[in-house]
Design a protein around this nucleic acid. Structure first.
Length: 926
DNA sequence: AAACTGATCCCTTAGAGCGAA
DNA sequence: TCTTCGCTCTAAGGGATCAGT
């Protein structure tokens, strides 16, 4: 296929790229009984879909919680499952996102589409819907439905499986599951869908998919909170639009899975989850892509969805399908697309699935069986069978066999049975929002990045094809491992793209993780959306020592213009090209609580030029040196030149340069990826306390690396070398991760780094601003300090902290909550949520998430994290107001410096202004 | 006006899936 | 029925271009 023009792709006028063509979606909706059926219409649907299927969509009115326009997503009912998947999509309605066109839809914030089979749909679901949602299903009757917006929600947990099967569950339970999503209005923008509608398909797709997945999976997973329906919903919708894919899928091919259909991937994949990821996502863009339509068209795959659903759980599948579709397609509108997609999927699925119609139970079972693989399946595509496809994902159930077969191929990985479903954790809906800061270790558990990603990875636009998975510096791919987990239950590792600036770690508004699928990918994964942020979910299997090779994650760049137009978005995309891979794992404990850990990678530069031209320091052999200097330091990185200069600078808090000097570079030993320098003497040889400074590699006027941290210590103080990790235990973890885990020799300090650290540590704040982490480390080490290091205490939640965290290193004064090293967040199982406080501030971009949801209320609420600061103890209660606390943090950072002195660790900090760093970076030119 | 950047395009290469021989 | 060959298409990447800052 010709390259895609996004424009063309979407049909949307250029401007709107992002917005998908909503139109499709809707196509026709009929109200029937309360349900409306939608048929894919022409364009989209046509091809592919099998006629047979009809989708019924129920629209519920939405309740909008807040402002949000968001949506929800669906929940599918599990019900049906057997076939039917009901799917609910949520549309993003309100959001700006929606194009006016869609208004109708839009108006209703959310829409849930359920596909059902005739019967299937049933009751249960409906019930829920109704019940829960009130509106009963409002089915709006025909038109009405749509218009009335209603609903939202989702359940999460429920996912099909549960619900269905368990329909018996006490209401309460169900309820829980149900959740309302909040719409993210604001977030919306983040949503891919919303965001750029245009843009991105990908994004959308992503989202959508994600969502879908989530849904799907989630339900599968059900568990995985992560999956959280919530998010997905949002996404999906949008994505959905695209979806159409289903069309493509039609027959079997369900997109989802596989690519099934097509062997090639394309179709399949896309459908899938996008496995292909890229493309799919980008659908639009994607050059090739099939547009959904088109190419895909043939596809027919609908099946997927259907399938999936069927397979897994009805619910799921549906969703999935939807989702995927959504993505796939273009980006078109979210909603619409999504819906359509969903529908299609359903339909398709319906066909297929239905056929298969696996009983819920069966499904479950199967699911269980199904190895993870199923999940992945992807491409496998071969089969077009709808059923299969669908299944895969979730369930594996049905087809486990097949899948495996297929899958096997695809996913190598462990085939192991890991099925997404297994992980079920419960679903508590409430997992911590993505912008919450979580510790990297808690109690016996420690999440670490064993192999850090390369510092450069050119992200791809939706309009481009995938640029592959993020790789490790030494070749291969990043590796993440959860230490201390002795249970036999697989867990789900979540991955999303976070910021790399000095502020608290949060989902990056301009980048999304992109699922890579294909033969070269050995790790199964699936996407889910959480508040507009795509989250890749990867199984962590005991058999693999809870270690995962991240070879399935690429990075998608969303158009700045798309994102910046979102409401609520405050970040700017220009020069905001550094990201970090953020990994999370939620460990359910017997007590019913969930310990959530997070670790962030070193910063990754995602722009084309930067990667090509700017020097970048990945590692430094020294973090500290006595004031007299003179020690040799090895810098590993990229784009070093013979005439590269290494400049040490010290800035005052206000940003003024206090000192600047050029280090001596051993030219003869310099290489493109390494430099050996002699640490210059500090301006003041009589230091009484460590002093944090920065240095950067300069290849020319505007070609500077980011600032790297460095600390001069009193001559008597032992220098530390790099080992960052060491120290921290908890903190360490973080650091390690951050840094590089790897070992690190070097700590990376890039400003960003800091962040990571934060992340890892969780404490976002803790560290302090940008650099804090590193600093902390430094400090710590040198002294060997006590652990007190700030790091250790992560606070979790600091969340809030102002954007700049500035650090806090150490701050942790005992009293402070934050300090606590690990904070783990605990959720209660059930979902209830608690503390709103927890929610971090969402900052502009990031946060959207949960909050909206409600924290308080419902669904999300569930999540309550309690954060504990302390390592172990997760206290539930803690409230975590943390965020709010942050303010202090910043100060701390600074203070830390001073404080440093004493407190071991921390101290040091430096700090700088994180901001500045960035700025500097930005300015660099300056 | 020059220097950057962001967003696309274009092109190339390696593989995989398919179908025809 | 199996194997081989050629074709098509996609994922990945690298580089260049164009327009807006």
């Amino acid at each position: 296929m010709p390259p895609y023009n996004h424009n063309s792709c979407s049909h949307v006028p250029p401007h709107h790229h992002h917005h998908p063509p909503l139109p499709l979606v809707v196509t026709s909706a009929f109200a029937t009984d309360g349900q409306s059926f939608i048929r894919p219409s022409g364009s989209v649907g046509t091809h592919h879909k099998p006629p047979s299927v009809q989708y019924s969509v129920h629209l519920y009115s939405m309740q909008i919680n807040q402002s949000c326009p968001s949506l929800c997503l669906f929940s599918m009912a599990a019900d049906a499952y057997g076939y039917t998947p009901n799917v609910s999509l949520s549309l993003p309605l309100g959001n700006s996102c929606l194009p006016s066109q869609y208004h109708s839809l839009q108006s209703s914030p959310t829409i849930s589409v359920s596909v059902t089979e005739p019967h299937s749909y049933d009751t249960q679901d409906d019930m829920r819907a109704t019940g829960y949602y009130s509106s009963a299903n409002v089915r709006p009757n025909g038109a009405p439905t749509l218009e009335s917006p209603r609903i939202e929600i989702t359940a999460y947990g429920q996912f099909p499986e549960d619900e269905v099967e368990e329909s018996n569950l006490p209401v309460a339970k169900r309820v829980n599951s149900i959740v309302t999503l909040t719409l993210p209005s604001a977030e919306g923008y983040r949503d891919p869908s919303c965001l750029s509608p245009a843009s991105s398909i990908s994004s959308r797709s992503c989202h959508s998919e994600a969502s879908s997945y989530e849904s799907n999976y989630s339900y599968n997973y059900d568990n995985s909170p992560q999956n959280s329906p919530w998010q997905s919903p949002s996404v999906s919708p949008k994505g959905s639009t695209l979806v159409l894919p289903g069309e493509s899928c039609a027959p079997g091919g369900s997109p989802r899975h596989s690519p099934c259909t097509s062997p090639r991937t394309s179709v399949t994949d896309d459908s899938w989850m996008g496995q292909r990821g890229s493309r799919p996502n980008s659908p639009c863009g994607a050059k090739r892509k099939y547009s959904f339509n088109g190419s895909g068209a043939p596809h027919k795959h609908y099946p997927y969805s259907p399938n999936h659903s069927p397979g897994l759980s009805p619910q799921t599948s549906p969703r999935l399908s939807i989702t995927e579709e959504s993505w796939l397609p273009n980006t078109n509108q979210y909603t619409n697309s999504a819906i359509l997609a969903a529908i299609n999927a359903l339909t398709t699925d319906g066909v297929v699935d239905l056929g298969e119609g696996i009983p819920m139970k069966a499904r479950k079972t199967s699911v269980e069986h199904s190895p993870t693989v199923s999940l992945k399946l992807e491409p496998g595509g071969e089969e077009l069978n709808p059923g299969e496809l669908c299944q895969d994902e979730h369930s594996s159930n049905r087809l486990p066999l097949k899948k495996e077969g297929y899958c096997g191929g695809f996913l190598d990985v462990p085939q192991h049975p890991y099925s997404w479903s297994k992980p079920k954790q419960y679903v508590s809906p409430s997992l911590p929002a993505l912008d919450w800061q979580l510790p990297s270790s808690s109690g016996p558990y420690s999440l670490q990045i064993e192999v850090q990603p390369k510092s450069h990875h050119r992200a791809h636009y939706e309009t481009e094809g995938s640029r592959g998975a993020v790789k490790a510096l030494a070749g291969g791919h990043p590796v993440v491992q959860l230490h201390g987990y002795m249970e036999s239950e697989p867990l789900t590792l979540q991955l999303f793209i976070g910021t790399a600036d000095d502020r608290l770690l949060r989902p990056h508004a301009f980048y999304q993780v992109h699922r890579i699928t294909g033969k070269t990918v050995s790790t199964p994964s699936h996407e889910a959306l959480h508040n507009n942020t795509k989250v890749l979910e990867i199984p962590l299997l005991p058999e693999n020592n809870m270690r995962a090779i991240i070879d399935c994650a690429g990075i998608l760049k969303l158009r700045n213009s798309d994102i910046e137009l979102r409401k609520g978005e405050t970040d700017i995309g220009r020069k905001n090209t550094r990201v970090r891979m953020v990994f999370r794992v939620h460990i359910n404990q017997a007590t019913g609580r969930t310990v959530s850990l997070q670790v962030a990678s070193n910063p990754i530069e995602c722009s084309q030029r930067s990667a090509q031209e700017l020097p970048l320091v990945d590692k430094q052999s020294l973090e500290t040196c006595p004031a007299p200097g003179g020690e040799r330091m090895l810098l590993d990185g990229h784009n070093f030149q013979h005439d590269s200069k290494v400049v040490f600078v010290e800035k005052a808090q206000d940003g003024h340069h206090l000192w600047e000097t050029e280090a001596k570079v051993e030219r003869e030993a310099s290489k493109p990826n390494s430099l050996i320098i002699e640490v210059p003497p500090y301006r003041n040889q009589r230091l009484s306390t460590p002093v944090h400074v920065n240095f950067y590699v300069c290849n020319g006027k505007r070609k500077r690396s980011q600032y790297q941290r460095f600390t001069y210590v009193p001559a008597s103080v032992p220098t530390i070398k790099t080992e960052p990790h060491d120290d921290y235990d908890a903190p360490l973890v973080c650091s390690q991760h951050n840094s590089g885990l790897s070992l690190h020799p070097k700590p990376y300090f890039p400003p960003q780094v800091m962040t990571p650290m934060m992340t890892s540590d969780l404490r976002p704040c803790v560290v302090g601003g940008a650099f804090p982490a590193s600093q902390q480390r430094l400090a710590a080490k040198p002294a060997s300090l006590p652990s007190s290091s700030p790091s250790s205490s992560p606070k979790l939640h600091d969340l809030s902290p102002p954007p700049f965290s500035k650090c806090l290193p150490a701050v942790q004064h005992p009293g402070q909550q934050s300090p606590i090293p690990h904070v783990s967040i605990i959720q209660e199982t059930p979902g209830r949520f608690q503390a709103p406080g927890l929610y971090p501030p969402s900052s502009s971009s990031s946060s959207p998430v949960s909050q909206p949801s409600t924290p308080g209320t419902g669904p999300e609420a569930p999540f309550s994290p309690t954060h504990c600061m302390t390592p172990t103890p997760p206290v539930s209660s803690s409230t975590s107001p943390v965020a709010q606390q942050h303010p202090k943090v910043p100060e701390r950072g600074r203070s830390s410096l001073q404080e440093d002195g004493s407190p071991p660790a921390l101290a040091v900090s430096i700090k700088q202004e994180p901001q500045e760093l960035d700025q500097m970076y930005l300015d660099d030119g300056e």
